[in-house]
Amino acid sequence: MTRPDSYRGRFAPSPTGDLHFGSLLAAVGSWLLARHADGAWLVRIEDVDPPREIPGASVRQLETLDAFGLHPDEKVVRQSRRGHLYQDALDRLLRSGDAFECHCSRSDLAASGGVHRRCVARSPRPDPAIRLRVPDGTVIGFEDAIQGPQEQDVSRDVGDFVLRRAEGYWAYQLAVVVDDRAQGITDVVRGADLLGSTPRQIFLQQVLGLPTPRYAHLPLVVDAHGRKLSKSDAALPVDAGNPLPALKEAWRALGQDPVMIEAADGVASLLERARAGFDPDRIPHSGHIALAATHNDGFIFAP
C-alpha cells in the first residue's frame, strides 16, 4: 500500500448491538492504517435504521472504543442528526432525473429476484421509495487496497437501488456517500462484507459529482463454522474491562508480527508498539479469517 500525502479515515459502526470482535477488528484495522499514514481517524455512528437500533448500544460502543484506547481525532458524528444533508443530495438527484419515486413492493419485484429495472407496481403507494436510476451497462470497477481489483455490473446485479425507503428512513448507500464527502474521508477501511456495496457508492459519487475515496476491505471474521460473527455465538461483546487479549487477537488476525507487541504491558503500550510495527502489506488478502478464540475460551469476550 502506498502512503498518501493526506489521509482521513473513519470507523462507522451501526448501533445494532455492542462491539463484537469483528467490529473491533474493523476499528483497530482502520485506526492502524490511519496512524500509519500519519492521518486522522474519525468515528461516525450510522444510526439511520431505527427499527434495528438497540437502545444504549452507541453509548456502549463508544465506551468500548475508549477502553481500547481508540480515540477519534474529531467529534463523533451521528447520522440521525444529518438528515438535512441527505435531503439536499436527494433533491439534487430528483431535479436532475437521476432519482425517481418507486411504488414497487418486494412482491412486485420477486420475479426479477428483487432487482429493479423498471417500475412494475400494481398500484400507487402513498409512501413510495426513492431510487437511483442505474442505466443499462453501468459497470463499476475499482482497486481495493487489500482485496485487489473489483468489478460489478451494477445495472444487472443490483439495479435501481433505494436512496430513501418507503418508511421514510434514509438508505445506507446515500447516507454513507454524503457523509464521507462531508467529512473529507479519503480512505474507507471496513469489513469485506461491505465489498459488494462499494460499486453502488462509487456510482452514486459519480452521479453527484463527488470524489471517490480509496477503499480497503479487511477480511471478514468468521467463527469455527465459517459463519459471520453477527450470525454466531462469537458475536458476544468484547471485554472492555480486559482489552489486551482482544487487541492481541486483532493484531494476529491482521497478519502482524506478534513479536512487535509481546512486551506490551498495557493498552497504551500495545498501541504505541503496534503503531510503530504495523505493516499494511501483511494484512491477509483472503475474504475471511477464522477467529482463533472460541466462545468457550471466553478470554476476549465480556463475562
Rank of each mutant, 00 (worst) to 15 (best):
S155G: 09
R81E: 07
S105M: 04
L94D: 02
D160C: 09
H288E: 15
I202E: 06
R164T: 09
I202R: 01
H103Q: 04
Y172N: 10
Q183T: 09
Q205T: 06
V221S: 05
V158E: 05
R190V: 06
G39R: 00
L208P: 03
H285Y: 00
Q173V: 15
D153V: 02
G17H: 12
V115H: 04
A274I: 10
A246V: 07
Q183E: 15
G266N: 02
A111L: 13
E74T: 13
R252G: 10
P213H: 04
D47N: 15
Y86C: 02
D66M: 00
D47R: 05
Q183Y: 06
F68R: 02
Y172M: 05
I130A: 07
I54P: 08
G69T: 07
R82S: 03
R82A: 04
K231W: 11
G209S: 00
S58A: 15
H285K: 12
L33D: 11
A290M: 11
I45V: 15
I283S: 01
H295P: 04
H71L: 06
D108M: 06
F301D: 00
L70R: 05
F21R: 03
V158M: 04
A40I: 07
Q61G: 13
P72F: 14
S269G: 11
V59P: 08
S58C: 03
A235C: 08
V267I: 12
D297L: 10
D160W: 14
G159W: 03
P55C: 09
L210V: 07
P280T: 08
I45Q: 01
A26W: 04
I54R: 12
H71G: 02
L32T: 12
Y172L: 04
F11Q: 00
A121C: 03
H116L: 14
I289Q: 10
S123K: 12
R164K: 13
F100G: 05
L62S: 04
Q256I: 11
L208Q: 01
Q147V: 05
G298I: 03
V207L: 01
S286V: 14
V177N: 07
G39T: 02
H36N: 07
R125Q: 13
A12Y: 02
I140H: 02
D297F: 13
T186G: 09
Q87N: 07
P303K: 06
R131F: 15
H71R: 14
P124K: 06
T2R: 04
G83C: 08
E262C: 03
T138K: 02
S96N: 01
S123L: 10
R214G: 15
V177C: 10
V28M: 06
H295L: 15
R273A: 15
A67F: 14
S269W: 05
L229E: 08
W31T: 14
D179A: 08
G159L: 07
A27C: 12
G287D: 05
W41C: 10
G196V: 09
F161A: 07
S14G: 08
R133D: 00
A246I: 11
D179Y: 01
D193S: 06
I283F: 02
F278K: 12
A235V: 03
V77I: 09
V176S: 02
I146V: 14
F11R: 00
G69P: 15
Q206D: 11
V259P: 06
S232R: 05
M260L: 13
Q61S: 09
